[in-house]
Nucleic acid binder design. Sequence first.
DNA 1: GATGAATGAGCTTTCATTCAT
DNA 2: AATGAATGAAAGCTCATTCAT
Lengths: 179, 179, 179, 179
Amino acid sequence: MELLRAAIATLAESGYAGASLRKVAQRAGFTTGAVTYYFANKEAMIAAVVEHLWDEYDAHLESIAGLGLNRRLRSWIAMNANSDIVEAQFQLLAQAKHEPLLAEIYERRYARYRKRMAERILDQQRTGDIRSDIPADLLADHISAMADGWSMMLHVEPKRFAPRRLSALLVGLDKLFEP
Amino acid sequence: MELLRAAIATLAESGYAGASLRKVAQRAGFTTGAVTYYFANKEAMIAAVVEHLWDEYDAHLESIAGLGLNRRLRSWIAMNANSDIVEAQFQLLAQAKHEPLLAEIYERRYARYRKRMAERILDQQRTGDIRSDIPADLLADHISAMADGWSMMLHVEPKRFAPRRLSALLVGLDKLFEP
Amino acid sequence: MELLRAAIATLAESGYAGASLRKVAQRAGFTTGAVTYYFANKEAMIAAVVEHLWDEYDAHLESIAGLGLNRRLRSWIAMNANSDIVEAQFQLLAQAKHEPLLAEIYERRYARYRKRMAERILDQQRTGDIRSDIPADLLADHISAMADGWSMMLHVEPKRFAPRRLSALLVGLDKLFEP
Amino acid sequence: MELLRAAIATLAESGYAGASLRKVAQRAGFTTGAVTYYFANKEAMIAAVVEHLWDEYDAHLESIAGLGLNRRLRSWIAMNANSDIVEAQFQLLAQAKHEPLLAEIYERRYARYRKRMAERILDQQRTGDIRSDIPADLLADHISAMADGWSMMLHVEPKRFAPRRLSALLVGLDKLFEP
DNA sequence: GATGAATGAGCTTTCATTCAT
DNA sequence: AATGAATGAAAGCTCATTCAT
């Protein structure tokens, strides 16, 4: 829906504290009343946004599932830079710790996300693309933590992700995880 | 100062959006007016909090500088679980993207923090405790990203950091970084 | 609108410094939020009040345009005494020097007001009711300054405007301006 | 005293609504506490300021008492433009209507001021410099009203007081009041 | 004689929410 | 299906005032 997209853009642009219903509605071309017409209240809208974000996130990851780790990371970084998805996710995650409803959603979907990643890594361990001396679920945890950390810093320390530096980081990663 | 401590606790408890001057003042046993007496405005208070947080964070890292990577990570995770420092940092970092003043502070102090970590890793590469086929500054980046990612998820997915699981993760880490 | 009327009454009663949105809203039977619903902010409300005041002021002057100078002044003084218009104007004028937006409105409307007055005086110069040895625009300036001065003092020195004294002042005025 | 001077300058610069004790104290190089040390409260300070302003105003008028009407007005206009006295007076007068203590002071000193002006005009009527067909006290009222009106508009409509226009206005005035 | 810490009331403004239409 | 008027609570902030030192 239009409103969800507007909410994501607003979250990415203004942060959670700055994402008022007013702003969201205005960006979508509605009045504030419309938002509370479609959603019971703000919390409900935010919850819908989170689910929607995860759907989009999962879809993107699915679309690059066949690629190698390095390629996947590059594609993921491109999404970070060019879409509001990850930034909005980050803002909502920061809020999730103080809203049980959000926390529940994140716990559930994050677990599923990491399970899939573990499966993918297991595949690559079988084909010999990734080291096998560490269980796949642990590696999935290591990698997703690193990804979270980078997405967290992307807009605060942009220099850290300049193309050349980024390549070096990914080369390093390859070495860390190669058999 | 009392107010800084109260601000950190409030940030950790209520998040950035919920950390009003009123709440901070009340927790410290002051009235709202006292906060604006000591700080020109909220932005100034937040900036003071950030600097203070980094001072404490740095002090803690300094105190465990001599230990091995594994020990350092364990101590760092203990701090995450038992102190408000990291949670408050996370809340402020989420806001930093939308407040240039904060962003500037984070950029400066984060760079310094990662530089020190790289020096420490270089030491351990020389003593043969850490693999040397990847430059120390890249490894510092990998590790700090992972640390950021974990601190980000600590309160949302507590199960991910149950003692047994945590040990496994750290064993995995050791393997990733050992020569 | 109700709010504009309430604002004018509040300005007249409490002065600019004492005319809070709270008071205005309360007098109009609204909550404070209603004021900021109709006006973007206080400055916008004040600007709307000023334009409204001038509209009413102009309408009154128009309604007495056909009368002689003496009659016009008497009618104008009656308005001063019985309506909040002039007192509110005075309060806002005092503030205009420190708010460019207000200053601009006053400059524009005052110029128009004095231009009309000059036209009226020119008419009376042609009919021989007012002396012609001084240009009409200068006389308009003299008279409007006097009117401003009196409206300024009306509520501070009420004795100065007791009926008998007032008549004497107007007789004097007639002599000053008669051919 | 330093504080009185600072208060006058602040009133002229920021208007009554903007003249906080903070600003006054700061301009005088004191702390806010010092103001309430010297004066019982804000009202008392304002009252002291008003008396001081009148003293200075009277002193200035005394110093030009011997000059002709036209000269006196020119000197008075110069004071308006170059000193804070008249502007501060104006701001306080606007407030006087809502503070009985101020109103009382203004009533008393304004009466005295106009009495002296009437005496001076009487002198000039005797020497034949001013028309005698209107009683001096009425003329004093007419002139002081005009002066009030001009001082009120000086900073709002500066164009109205450009040198050339001003001269024309004063020539007109001379004609109005000449025998 | 003057400061500096602190208060508490009040200010403008923003916001989520309600509800008649 | 959606608007627009209005609310009421809470926010950041300013201010006059108090008082121990």
